[in-house]
């Protein structure tokens, strides 16, 4: 068992890790073909993994309904809406519209999913305002610099800001293009090195926690 749970996955990781690291340097169509095949495998595995996810979702909510936990009614709503959408989706062949006519699935998409998702995203504006009010304080010199930069960028990104302070547009461009881009690059360099180091450790089996944490 330990061989199947440890050695085999590590061996697969080592071989595929090295092969696909090398693939980057091989321009031959065969190497590209190999990459395409593997991405297709990933798609297939991803499809099967969804079964795992959906069964987990059903299990968790079934338990909630059975135990009559607080808010079990929501779990019931989840079951009904999920199964309902699947049924309607299959009935409509997964199409929102057929020959310009909206299907039942299209109705769910347009009049439930679109406004619900739009609402969730729109909340962001309100949360940004409340978070800014609560946390954007010039507690230190660094925080004051951040505050001033934020105000300039906010002014420079809207016509009213540019109208009130004409220089804010160019200033915000400069902040975004020079200061922001350079700082982000510095973070990116650090992140990339971390990524490469982690990948090396995973390929050579030094990092195994993703297989279940422990050392054998």
């Amino acid at each position: 068992m330990i061989f199947l749970r440890r050695q085999v996955p590590l061996l697969i990781t080592l071989i595929t890790g090295l092969v696909f690291a090398a693939q980057y340097y091989v321009p031959h169509p065969a190497s590209e073909q190999m990459l395409t095949s593997v991405t297709k495998w990933l798609q297939i595995i991803g499809g099967f993994a969804l079964v795992l996810g959906v069964s987990s979702l059903f299990h968790v909510h079934a338990m909630k309904i059975r135990r009559k936990e607080a808010g079990w009614g929501y779990s019931f709503v989840l079951y009904v809406s999920m199964l309902g959408t699947i049924a309607v989706g299959l009935w409509s062949n997964g199409k929102e519209a057929i020959d310009g006519t909206m299907t039942a699935f299209g109705w769910i998409y347009n009049f439930m999913m679109v406004p619900l998702q739009g609402t969730m995203f729109a909340i962001l504006a309100f949360f940004i305002a409340s978070a800014a009010y609560r946390s954007f304080r010039a507690r230190s010199r660094e925080a004051a610099v951040l505050l001033i930069a934020a105000v300039i960028v906010m002014m420079g990104r809207v016509p009213l800001g540019e109208y009130l302070i004409p220089l804010s547009g160019d200033l915000s461009q400069w902040i975004l293009n020079v200061l922001n881009a350079s700082v982000r690059r510095a973070i990116l360099i650090g992140v990339s090195l971390g990524t490469v180091a982690l990948s090396i450790k995973i390929i050579f089996g030094m990092e195994r926690s993703y297989l279940g944490g422990g050392k054998e």
Binding site: I45, A49, L50, V51, L52, S56, S209, L211, G212
Partner: peptide, 12 residues
């Protein structure tokens, strides 16, 4: 948000 991540994290 990802079933495979869920399976791995269960093991971990």
């Amino acid at each position: 948000r990802d079933p495979i991540t869920m399976a791995v994290c269960q093991e971990i």
